[in-house]
Simulated scan of single mutants.
Amino acid sequence: MTASLFPDLIVNGEVVPHTLVAAEVQNHAAPSGKPGIAWRKAANAVAVRTLLLQEARRRGLVAHPAEVGPGRFETEEEALIRDLLDQTVNVDPPGDEAIRAEWSRDPTRFRTPPLWEVSHILMACDPRDPEAKSAALARAVAVQEELRDRPGDFARLAARHSDCGSRMAGGALGQLGPGDTVPEFEAALRGLAERETTSAPVLTRHGYHIIRMDALALGAELPFETVQPRIATALEKAAWSCAARDFISNLVAGAKVTGAELGAM
C-alpha cells in the first residue's frame, strides 16, 4: 500500500507520520483489493489514539508503564492512555436491582457448560492449499452422500475414510466440552441436536469434517446467587466502555481532525 495515495492525518495541528498509520493497517480487515478501507480504519484508530495522548499530555500526566506479562511492559503511550482513562472514566458498581433485572431477562443464559458426545469423519487438508482443499471437499461430499442413503454406516465409513486416529473407534471422539476443540468445530456442535449429523462438510483448520452428535447434555441452569458476581462484572465493564466512548466522543467533538472520519463517533 502506498501511503502517498492517502491524505495526511492532522490532529489539532499535529501531523501524524504516515508510518504510524501504515503500521496500524495490519490490525484492520478490508475486502481484497480495497486497501483504502483498511487505511481509513487505521487512520481513525490512530487519530483517536493521538487525541488521547494529546489530552494526557495536556493534563501533565507522566507515564508509568505497568507489567502486562512476565518481563513485558506497556509502552509509554499505552501507560499514558490507561492513566488518562483511569482518571477520567468512572462508573458506579451496579446495584442489586440492576443485577437481578439483567438476570431476570433470561435466566436460562446462565448454565454450567454443555457436554457433547461426538463422532466425526475427517478429510484432512491444509485449507490454504486450494488443490488439497478441493480434493478433501470432494471426498467429504461423496461420504456425506453415502451417509444419506445409509446413516447407520457412520462407523464403517469413518473406519474406511477418516484421516483421524478416531477411525479405529468408528470416528468416536468421546465427550467434549466448550474449549476442547477448535472454534470452527465447536460452532458446528452448538448447532446440532442429539443424533443429528451435519448436513454438509464442516471446514476447520484441519480439513473437512462430517460430524454426528451422539449424545447431548445441556448445562444445568445456575441459581441467581451463583451468577450474581459474574453479572455484576459484566454490567460494570459495559458501563465503563460506554463512558469511555462518551469521553472519546467529547474529545472528537472539540478537535480539528483531517485525514480521518470521526464524525460518527
Rank of each mutant, 00 (worst) to 15 (best):
I211D: 03
A135F: 01
A135L: 10
G177T: 04
R100W: 02
P35E: 14
R59P: 07
L122V: 09
H120N: 06
V89L: 06
R230A: 13
E78N: 08
V68H: 10
L52W: 02
R205P: 13
E74A: 10
L20Y: 12
Q87E: 13
G170P: 09
G170D: 13
A172P: 00
S119A: 13
V11M: 08
R105P: 08
A98Y: 00
A140M: 01
L147T: 02
R111L: 13
A38V: 10
V91F: 00
V143L: 01
E221V: 15
S32C: 08
R139S: 07
S119P: 04
D86A: 12
P70L: 14
G177W: 04
I81Q: 13
A244Y: 07
I81M: 11
E146M: 06
P35F: 05
L52N: 06
H18M: 11
V257L: 05
T226Y: 00
A142Y: 02
R111M: 11
G259S: 05
A138C: 02
F185V: 02
A220Y: 01
A79P: 10
G263P: 03
H64G: 15
A23E: 11
M213N: 04
A264K: 04
A159L: 08
L203Q: 11
A79M: 14
P31D: 10
R59D: 10
D96F: 00
P114L: 14
Q26G: 01
A238W: 02
T181R: 07
T226N: 04
R212N: 09
V257Q: 01
E102W: 02
F154W: 01
I99H: 05
A23H: 02
G152T: 03
G263H: 14
G33M: 09
S241C: 04
R205A: 15
A215F: 00
M168C: 05
R167M: 07
A155D: 13
M1R: 08
G95D: 15
R109T: 12
A30L: 11
V257T: 03
G152A: 06
G207F: 00
E261Y: 01
P31E: 12
S119N: 03
E236R: 14
T197L: 07
R49A: 11
T197G: 06
T75D: 15
R190E: 14
C164V: 04
A172W: 00
P93G: 11
A159E: 06
V182R: 03
R230M: 11
P178D: 12
L137T: 00
G165I: 00
N12L: 08
H120R: 01
A172M: 03
P65I: 12
K256H: 13
H209E: 07
G263R: 14
K41T: 04
L61C: 08
R82M: 09
E24P: 03
R245E: 15
I211K: 01
H64W: 15
D86F: 12
Q26R: 10
P127G: 05
A239C: 09
E77R: 08
A232L: 05
E261N: 11
V202K: 06
I10N: 05
D129E: 10
I99G: 03
A30D: 08
A23Y: 01
A56F: 05
T108A: 13
A158W: 00
P130A: 15
